[in-house]
Design a binder for these strands. Structure first.
Lengths: 113, 113
DNA sequence: GTAACCACTGTACTGAAGTATACCAAAATA
DNA sequence: TATTTTGGTATACTTCAGTACAGTGGTTAC
């Protein structure tokens, strides 16, 4: 194994670590698709719980994937906005959607009943 | 949420389910990089255990991601070969490597010390 | 003869990820 | 007036991916 493969594997595993978890990418996708508010994002991802969404959003904010904007009018309005860091992942997500579409018949999902 | 977003999310989640787990993509990457034999693949992915590799390879064979060829000469030679289905994911892996490289400073990994 | 390599399998365990459910206060809607 | 919506938090539980490690049966090198 040469030096390049070691470095490539490291970069790959960095990315995999980053997208770890079941909900991170669907959330990024949702936000990049224009959803901004908590319940809006929640509704756009069937199956996610408020707990998971809350945790993920917090973690994603800490990791500079999104910005949380609070408008303290009444009622308070909270908006989540994707950062460039988040958007730069968009191409990969698009390709994943495409791959999933093409290989739908091959990929047999055990979950979701 | 319109129909397209629902379908996109489904395709995305199919792909995410498919790449689920810590080792699947590193294994695909290794095999697409030319590694063919069990110990060879194992050595190319530091940290993986024989057990996980064994399980993944079996599962990947069942999912038509690779073909297991046994040459029953003595000693027996076993080779894992990527299918087109597997190779078609290569572009996404490359982009992930690239993304990881660019965002190395931002992505802070908690694991691996 | 013994040590190492190959290609694995079996058993047992842990911990983190995810689920389920209830709850909160304020405001808007019916 | 009652219900729903918003933006979440708290508590408890479950599941399974991943780890650790020992063992197997054969082969070849020293």
């Amino acid at each position: 194994m040469d030096r390049d493969q070691v470095e490539e594997l490291r970069s790959l595993q960095d990315t995999l670590y980053f997208i770890g978890g079941k909900w991170r990418i669907p959330i990024m996708n949702s936000i990049c698709n224009g959803n901004r508010r908590f319940r809006e994002i929640e509704r756009s991802i069937p199956g996610i719980t408020t707990r998971m969404l809350s945790r993920e959003l917090k973690d994603m904010e800490a990791n500079k994937l999104l910005k949380r904007n609070v408008y303290p009018d009444t009622p308070v309005l909270v908006e989540y906005e994707p950062t460039e860091h988040c958007r730069s992942f968009g191409g990969i997500i698009s390709e994943m959607i495409n791959w999933g579409r093409i290989h739908r018949d091959i990929v047999v999902r055990k979950e979701n009943k």
